[in-house]
Design a protein around this nucleic acid. Sequence first.
DNA 1: AAAAAGATGGCCT
DNA 2: GGCCATCTTTTTT
Length: 196
Amino acid sequence: MPEMTPDALRAFCDRPPQIVAPELIGATLMLAGAGGMIVETEAYASGDPASHSFSGQTSRNAAMFGRPASAYVYLSYGIHWCFNIVCQPGSAVLVRALESLTGFDEMAARRGVSDPRKLCSGPGKLCQALGIDISHNGLDLDGGVLRLMPGEGGFQLLCGRRIGITRAVEREWRFGLAGSPFLSRRFPATARQTPG
DNA sequence: AAAAAGATGGCCT
DNA sequence: GGCCATCTTTTTT
């Protein structure tokens, strides 16, 4: 597949997040020479009680209402940055885990670990590894600083309940690459999704 | 003005 | 599995 143009990337993201999230498994996310393959995502939809956008636009979540294929970054628990890919207005996909591909030494240094399984196996961890912070909030993902490159698809995926939320927990909007050792947590063996 | 919650992660047992 | 650091945003008084 030829690399997507910025317009194609925007169109790819300008759909409901629960559709985009599974298709992002296998995509590549890069920031300044560091990055890897997305192996775990979660969808947060418009009108979703678990989404930051549920009660309307605020200063924190404003980026969720920006351009599709831009970044929504927020601080979690006062400590960790979390990175989302903006989809349709008021919706986004949280990137929860990466399998590192390039820039390993740099990421390991920022994380203070050497075990590749501990490098990007969580939304806060991958932001620390790549150096993502609030300065990246709202940036387009088409290559200026951050680059998102959707993959070929065709992976065997797992899906299940989202992690760490208290509302709308029944929605199975967490997606992961089956068998990957780089997930933030194992999936309970629930639903299985075949290549698309 | 005050309080509680929160899309986490690391360390403890 | 449990505890809790840490602080911004949001909600409630």
